[in-house]
Amino acid sequence: MNKFLGYIFTPIHYIVFGLLLLIFHPIQWLGLKLGGYKGHKKCVDLLNGFLVSTYYLMGSRVTFTNKQNLPLNRSIMFVANHQSMYDIPPLIWFLRKYHAKFISKIELAKGIPSISFNLKYGGGANIDRKDTKQAVSEIIKLGKRMKDNNWSVVIFPEGTRSRDGRLKPFAVGGIATIIKKVPEVLIVPVAINNSWKFVRFGKFPLSFGEHMTWEVLSPIEIAGRPVEEVLEEAHNAIQAVLHQ
């Protein structure tokens, strides 16, 4: 039934999703020109709130749980598992007060309405995976912006999406680079469940009636500990609440 209804409702979802990207592209431009960073960010936040609402067109439920009392005057590194592209809009919308940035493939920074504009001007890092020097340089710049502005970052340390929801090993990579630049950063694991089911049949049809959840877990202080040890703790925390 999930697949059958998906054939009916997926076109509606894609049409609305695409229209939102087209509509908000000039809105972002205006927000940036008239209001600078703050104006642009408000537009991006609003866009992603609307994008999350398109999930409901697929009969899906979105539950975002954050019971943690996280600081607003300190950079945070949200370490999350990655199951689909649909992980991202809820993270931007529900974590908007933390100014969470992303590390993205440089290819995404052009050609996609709204998304590319935000990646280019939103303050994140756009990296070329084939150019290690460029990638490290961009992540270092992101770390500096985090430190200067108390911004946060969302990291997907698996490196790629999990097609079946199973948690992959975490890579240290960019995480260690950011920690060197922002040693006081607070590590906060985020467990994402069932967004992989939304795309289990591929891009078409999307699966109808899935319940996707995002849960912010207890923060982890680095306090001079090895990065590998901190990441293992975050990995174990996420693994404990994933639905297998």
Results as ranks from 00 to 15, higher is better:
residue 56 Y to N: 01
residue 56 Y to V: 01
residue 57 L to W: 11
residue 62 V to W: 06
residue 62 V to G: 01
residue 63 T to Q: 09
residue 67 K to N: 15
residue 68 Q to D: 10
residue 68 Q to H: 09
residue 70 L to F: 13
residue 72 L to T: 13
residue 72 L to N: 10
residue 73 N to V: 03
residue 78 F to K: 11
residue 78 F to G: 09
residue 80 A to W: 03
residue 81 N to A: 07
residue 82 H to I: 09
residue 84 S to Y: 10
residue 85 M to H: 05
residue 87 D to Y: 01
residue 88 I to E: 03
residue 92 I to K: 03
residue 92 I to T: 04
residue 93 W to C: 12
residue 94 F to T: 00
residue 94 F to E: 09
residue 97 K to A: 05
residue 98 Y to M: 01
residue 98 Y to C: 05
residue 100 A to H: 00
residue 102 F to W: 03
residue 102 F to M: 06
residue 102 F to C: 06
residue 105 K to L: 01
residue 109 A to H: 09
residue 111 G to Q: 06
residue 111 G to R: 05
residue 113 P to F: 02
residue 113 P to A: 01
residue 114 S to D: 14
residue 115 I to K: 07
residue 117 F to W: 14
residue 117 F to K: 08
residue 118 N to A: 10
residue 121 Y to N: 15
residue 122 G to N: 13
residue 123 G to V: 01
residue 125 A to R: 02
residue 126 N to R: 05
residue 132 T to H: 10
residue 132 T to K: 10
residue 133 K to F: 09
residue 134 Q to V: 01
residue 136 V to I: 15
residue 137 S to T: 14
residue 137 S to Q: 14
residue 140 I to L: 07
residue 140 I to N: 07
residue 143 G to P: 14
residue 143 G to D: 13
residue 144 K to G: 12
residue 147 K to F: 02
residue 150 N to H: 12
